[in-house]
Design a protein around this nucleic acid. Structure first.
Length: 922
RNA sequence: GCCCGCUUAGCUCAGUUGGUAGAGCGCACGCCUCACACGCGUGAUGUCGAAGGUUCGAGUCCUUCAGCGGGCACCA
């Protein structure tokens, strides 16, 4: 076989994905079983502007593992890909491009501009879509969707119109968050709070007809130009005589009232609050309560309006702030300025400070839509969040406090709001312009210029991608989806809204489970970000270590926040290489052998190590299945890693080696070779969801693989490990006795290796090994394993006897079950070292024995602990007693030969021995 | 202000019904042993953040505290 010693991932990666895709393996149609259960995942659609980052790679890996696992188990599996038009991001991206040409979108006009965005999208968009192929993502490309596809656009309009007709969507005035840079309204969820060191200004307003002044504290002095009242708490005695009084608002010549409102906290500041209904959310609400006028003094560019007064009109808000403060100082109305830390609201995208403005927008009453979702989680605990803590609660408390959603955006790129106005300004909401005209009885209509929040179309993703509002086959088959895999940052923005819309318009929850992945930080625990430049590019990691190794790391991150560490990837790269070389060994010895053979007949007739590996294999399959069913990817990865490396490579291959590498062809050799191949093939299948490329690469090379390995649902397909049946645990093959016996074999071998290593016996040197085993069954195990033992410890001979009979001068170790192993000295052993080795071992046992004795002497423990636990400890105690007892027998010999070799632990009290009878009582 | 998470070996992290702590990397020693030096064998390493409590027994449950991180509300 001309297989290279080192696995080259790229070579395999480039080949297999193209074939899988071309063969249609990713599409659910590959499954021909009409009764197959269904498994659906819709991808969180990445922005068309985006490129792959670790967060995507993490989510995609989780989704792909789940999908491949279910597919191999015969589910009709759909993982639906797509991308999001990402309103603002994309528009900004293209505007930047235009700027380089000295143009703005207004130079092009709306139509031309959106055409340009579409071209940009075709040319540069969907980068992630290509990168996902690199990841091995088994998504059904034939069902790929884009949030501005024709179908999805229709869904968005339908949804909007239905909500409008149901009174859930309304058009009206409200105080919204406005980004002066992006020139659009934003929803609550698109803004971020940030702590900021600033100043608190204490301004004095004179009371009309008095020489009193009322002091108000503010962080935004410039807004005082728009004040229409000062509010105090109705129970605040300091101001009770001023209620209803009038204040002379400085710099404006306006007069404003003092009103009483419970909102005001008497403890804060001066207990008197300036009220600016047009530029602050709380003041807006207060303004409505007291029917105060709204004076707009700041415009959409965050500049002062004419209503701010001639002196300030046109000034930037910060320049106006300085000027206002300066003027107050001049008028001797500035009481003081103190340092103050407060939080400031910024645009989540461009970090510009938000300006709250009164404006006419479209809103969705989320509270009503949310009720069904809230009932579902509180009454039926659906969807099931993983990890449940803290996300189920985060989701629930969000649903309990829903506010209206500002839907409209003053952008050109996105779903245009299906609303038209006649010349009188009356609004008509309709599915098409023709409908609107019919409603209005005129064709002189103008469409609302605004588009919808990007998240509006996202909210429909699970249903719109499957064909809603039509009652398509896909919708019937694949909805509701099985699990949503996403990050915690969009639980409100997206997860909750999909649930609401799914319940409202498809009559069912959008997904059964929600898996929230952890966050990947850099190695210093910092969030990865483009601006910091500390991001690790998944593609670089793929290039360096291979996709499969990277996927293992990502899968085992699962829901935990993790610092990225290439060392871990490296160790999984090594694992991939280990798999490669184990397969290489099997293939180098595959003449006459076939996958699937070698385990004929009753398991009872198989050799011990064969029964053992099958037991280990099926336990592994059991654990992995259990782990994958409940999203415990870390456990699945660990289990597979140790099964493959420890059980299969370190022990099974080694124990099988002499049979497998026998020089002469013979049925026994062929059978041994087939067995090794068979186990390898099963292991590859178990690993495939995690490591799709290397497993396919190797699987294709195995002799005898083909249709027989495929899950029945895919029997017609060209053979691929992707469609092989996932190994199902068979309880009948789990053999605890075989496991215990091989464990004894492993212990023996390890003890001898330890002696060799500690005694500095040269690796090339062979030594005789004498094993004494009083127990008959165990003796049989060692006797029949003598050849394997000899090979693995480099023994010249392995002699197994009922009783200790070796030469006095030997290094000894005591094994479980009262057995003992001795390696005769014959001048090989350094006595000082041997003495030390034994002393350490003895010490360990003494310590443990003491602990056990103490515990077993505790009446409370014996009385209250479960009986099995007590028995287990007594067993262990007896075991130690046997060991130390055996040690004691050997000591005199050593002392004779080498005075001082052992140092006598007090031999009188071996608590274990006294406890022995107790064992029998149970 | 309210709620939540994390704190385990030098590093990154596991540890699901409470039973006496693990992995990978790193480290030490010896090996190119006919699949693999991206390897093999052997070994060392933790008062499981602190203090109390419940329990026969607590990394695992309860309380308090500390450090770090997150969410929500408020922020005149």
């Amino acid at each position: 076989m001309e297989i290279p010693k080192t696995y080259d991932p790229k070579e395999a990666e480039t080949r297999h994905y193209a074939r899988w895709e071309a063969q249609g393996y990713f599409a659910p149609e590959i499954n021909r079983d009409p009764a197959a259960p269904v498994y659906t995942i819709v991808i969180p659609p990445p922005n068309v502007t985006g490129s792959l980052h670790m967060g995507h790679a993490l989510q995609h890996t989780i989704m792909d593992v789940l999908t491949r696992y279910r597919r191999m188990r015969g589910y009709r599996t759909l993982w639906l890909p797509g991308s999001d038009h990402a309103g603002i991001s994309t528009q900004i991206q293209v505007e930047k491009q235009l700027k380089k040409e000295g143009l703005s979108r207004h130079d092009l006009g709306r139509e031309e501009f959106t055409a340009r965005v579409w071209r940009w999208k075709e040319q540069y968009g969907g980068e992630i879509t290509k990168q996902m192929r690199r990841e091995g993502a088994s998504v059904d490309w034939s069902r790929e969707r884009f949030t501005m596809d024709e179908g999805l656009t229709r869904a968005v309009r339908e949804f909007f119109v239905r909500c409008y007709e149901a009174g859930l969507i309304y058009h009206g005035e409200g105080l919204i968050s406005w980004c002066p840079k992006d020139q659009t309204a934003l929803s609550d969820l698109e803004v971020e709070k940030e702590a900021q060191a600033g100043k608190l200004y204490y301004l004095q307003y004179p009371v009309k007809g008095s020489d009193r002044r009322v002091t108000v504290a503010t962080t935004r002095p410039e807004t005082m130009l728009g004040d229409t009242a000062v509010a105090v708490n109705p129970h605040d005695e300091r101001y009770s005589d001023l209620l209803g009084a009038t204040l002379e608002l400085p710099l404006t010549g306006r007069e404003i009232p003092i009103v009483a409102d419970e909102f005001v906290d008497p403890e804060f500041g001066t207990g008197a609050v300036k009220v600016t209904p047009a530029h602050d959310p709380n003041d807006y609400a207060m303004g409505l309560r007291h029917k105060l006028p709204q004076v707009k003094v700041i415009d959409q560019h965050a500049r002062m309006t004419a209503d701010a007064g001639a002196e300030f009109a046109g000034l930037d808000r910060y320049a106006a702030r300085e000027k206002v403060v300066q003027r107050f100082a001049e008028l001797d109305l500035l009481e003081k300025v103190v340092d103050y830390e407060f939080s400031i609201t910024k645009c989540g995208r461009c970090r510009t400070v938000i300006e709250p403005l009164i404006s006419t927008q479209w809103f969705l009453k989320q509270a009503e839509l949310g009720r069904a979702a809230l009932d579902l989680i509180t009454e039926r605990h659906e969807p099931r969040f993983v990890p449940e803590v803290p996300y189920a609660k985060v989701y629930t408390s969000w649903l309990e406090n829903l506010h209206d959603w500002t839907l409209s955006r003053q952008l050109w790129w996105g779903h245009r709001i299906p609303a038209w106005y006649d010349e009188a300004g009356k609004v008509y909401v309709a599915r098409t312009e023709a409908d609107a005209q019919a409603q209005a009885g005129t064709n002189k209509l103008t469409q609302d210029p605004d588009v919808l929040d990007t998240w509006f179309s996202s909210a429909l993703w699970p249903i719109s991608t499957l064909g809603w509002p039509d009652e398509t086959e896909d919708l019937k088959i694949f909805y509701p989806t099985s699990v949503l895999v996403t990050g915690r940052d969009i639980i409100f923005l997206w997860v909750s809204r999909m649930m609401m819309t799914g319940l409202k318009f498809a009559g069912q929850k959008a997904f059964a489970d929600v898996f929230i992945t952890g966050t990947v930080f850099d190695k210093h625990g910092q969030r990865m970000s483009k601006s910091k430049g500390n991001g690790v590019d998944p593609l670089d990691v793929f290039d360096k270590y291979g996709v499969d190794a990277t996927r293992l790391v990502l899968a085992q991150i699962e829901g935990t926040d993790t610092r990225w560490n290439n060392n871990l990837v490296e160790s999984y790269r090594n694992f991939a290489n280990k798999i490669w070389n184990a397969a290489r060994f099997c293939l180098m010895n595959s003449e006459d052998a076939t996958v699937g053979r070698g385990f004929e007949g009753e398991p009872a007739s198989w050799a011990l190590h064969d029964r053992w590996i099958m037991s280990r294999l099926h336990k592994t399959a059991r654990t992995v299945a259990g782990a994958l069913e409940s999203y415990r990817f870390h456990e699945a990865v660990q289990t597979l890693y140790h099964f493959f490396w420890d059980d299969f490579c370190d022990w099974y291959i080694e124990l099988s080696k002499s049979d497998v590498t026998a020089a002469e062809p013979a049925p026994a050799r062929a059978a041994a070779r087939s067995r090794v191949l068979t186990v390898l093939e099963q292991a590859l299948r178990l690993l495939h969801p995690f490591m799709p490329f290397i497993t396919e690469e190797l699987w294709q090379r195995l002799p005898g693989v083909g249709a027989a390995q495929l899950h029945p649902a895919y029997a017609h397909a060209e053979p691929t490990i992707m469609l092989a049946a996932y190994p199902q645990p068979d309880a009948a093959l789990i053999d605890e006795r075989a496991e215990a016996e091989v464990q004894a074999l492993i212990e023996l071998i390890s003890r001898v290796r330890n002696i060799r290593s500690e005694m500095n016996i040269k690796p090339g040197e062979t030594v005789p090994v004498l094993v004494s085993v009083p127990d008959e069954t165990l003796r049989a195990v060692f006797e029949s394993g003598a050849q394997q033992i000899a090979r693995l410890v480099r023994a010249s001979e392995v002699s197994v006897q009922p009783n200790s009979n070796g030469p006095r001068a030997a290094a000894r170790a005591v094994l479980a079950g009262g057995a003992e192993v001795a390696v005769p000295l014959e001048g090989l052993i350094d006595f000082a070292v041997e003495r030390e080795r034994l002393r350490k071992e003895q010490e360990k046992l003494e310590k443990e024995a003491e602990k056990l004795a103490a515990q077993l002497a505790n009446e409370n423990f014996v009385a209250r602990a479960p009986a099995e636990k007590v028995t287990e400890l007594r067993q262990r105690q007896a075991d130690i007693a046997q060991r130390t007892g055996a040690e004691r027998q050997n000591h005199p010999a050593r002392e004779l030969d080498h005075p001082g070799l052992s140092e006598p632990q007090p031999r009188g009290r071996r608590p274990a021995q006294e406890e022995k009878p107790a064992t029998r009582e149970i």
